[in-house]
Design a protein around this nucleic acid. Structure first.
Lengths: 250, 250
DNA sequence: GTCTATATTTAGATAGAC
DNA sequence: GTCTATCTAAATATAGAC
């Protein structure tokens, strides 16, 4: 009967420790001690360290992925109802807000999960790539599909890059390094989720639209990508840029 | 005389291994074996694992930081010469291109360094925060200072957030997870640095400018931030948004 | 399900020879 | 500067008692 939520306690401890120190930084001993059980019990329930790591993700990700898919659906339904193109900020809000809001939900253990996710995103190791492919790639594909509906002229070779930029920005916004507080000398509160969402959504929208402006050309053949995107010896950005709006007084 | 570049060989091996497996994933034994020396020699030269980790960064970062500062200076000098506001895309290009270009410079070991940097960025552990504070914070402050010259009306509590978004996007663009290739089904080449820069710079510029449009209001008192940025119960983004350009045909 | 005990490997660090 | 040898602690994993 004590076995009721022993697995849950082990997962809690493991999640906390993996988030703080990464996969290799954590030993099963630490997990066992933090959970108040023996090492062998951890191995009894999860067999290996890798499987424990994966289980930690699985528990949280089902909820958050459900949230994200539901919000994405709403955006699509709304656009059909209004017979309008899918709203870019709507998609981006559906993309960022479930994760960002959870990331600072202390009760739900969100801060800890956020840090796990932050590690996962840029980690090339097999244990991390495996989890990423299994749990985050399906959402990524769905999100990109809806983004394509919001920006139908954006090229297939451009949208994935923008998506990657967006994921990177979102992850950075919820990472618990405390850097934004340090760099802003206290003027930015890393825990103000409403502000994060309120800045991140327009930031990303502005980014997507600017790139779309650069690469879409009404009537241009799909087979003839804009020259600015081809690799050349010289940086394609410094020469002949379009959006140098910062120069003139707005 | 054999001691000539033994330190260099050790650093090369350590860099490679730290990039692949992270700080805790690497043992001094692995480093020693990869470098073809004994463990004690590694400890003779670098004393502790943490110091070795720091030395790995130090070697690369002096060059790249010099590059970045020089480019930032150029942007400022150019703006004074033209008696114009600092160019936003110029700052962003100075911000991203040294890192992105190095990140795919195989001869200079850039790919490896890029992965190290990607880990560092979102890692809350002491060994990582220490390196970040020591080597990347000074550049961050300088970059933000010049960004402020490009966007003088952007609030002090907003610009650091946008900077963090930008760092996250850049790091994601050079991370060696291969995800962009996977998600684009081969349509995006993770090694096409020219394209990365050509997309990332306008993406970030569009983001900064969109946020600036939202938060700057000519003549508005600095003490009275725009309401959209205050925390409220409801998402401040979904209601009353400004930039829903995706809706109407452009 | 949960534990103790233990086997085996590997970790970071030091001492001292050359 | 570079090595071998060795120390002590800690890792994962297994066997078997309760």
């Amino acid at each position: 009967m004590a076995g009721k939520d022993t697995k849950g306690k082990i997962l809690d401890s493991a999640e906390q420790l993996f988030a703080e120190m990464g996969f290799h930084g954590v030993s099963l001993r630490m997990v066992a001690e933090a959970a108040g059980v023996s090492i062998s019990l951890v191995q009894y329930h999860f067999a290996t360290k890798e499987q424990l790591y994966e289980s930690v993700f699985e528990r949280r990700i089902v909820t958050i992925n459900h949230d994200r898919l539901r919000k994405l659906d709403q955006v699509e339904v709304e656009s059909r109802r209004l017979k309008q193109r899918v709203d870019l900020e709507g998609v981006l809000e559906a993309f960022v807000s479930p994760t960002v809001l959870l990331a600072r939900d202390k009760e739900a253990g969100g801060a800890v999960y956020a840090q796990l996710l932050a590690q996962l995103t840029n980690d090339p190791q097999p244990h991390a790539r495996k989890v990423s492919r299994k749990y985050t790639d399906p959402i990524a594909r769905q999100t990109m599909r809806v983004l394509h509906e919001a920006l139908p002229d954006m090229d297939d070779s451009v949208l994935p890059w923008c998506y990657v930029f967006a994921v990177g920005a979102m992850i950075a916004s919820i990472s618990t390094t405390g850097r934004v507080g340090l760099l802003s000398e206290g003027k930015c509160d890393p825990d103000d989720v409403q502000k994060i969402v309120a800045l991140l959504v327009p930031f990303l929208a502005g980014g997507f639209e600017r790139v779309a402006e650069l690469t879409d050309h009404a009537g241009r053949s799909k087979d003839e990508p804009a020259q600015v995107l081809n690799s050349r010896g010289k940086s394609p950005v410094t020469g002949g840029r379009k959006g140098a709006r910062g120069q003139d007084k707005r």
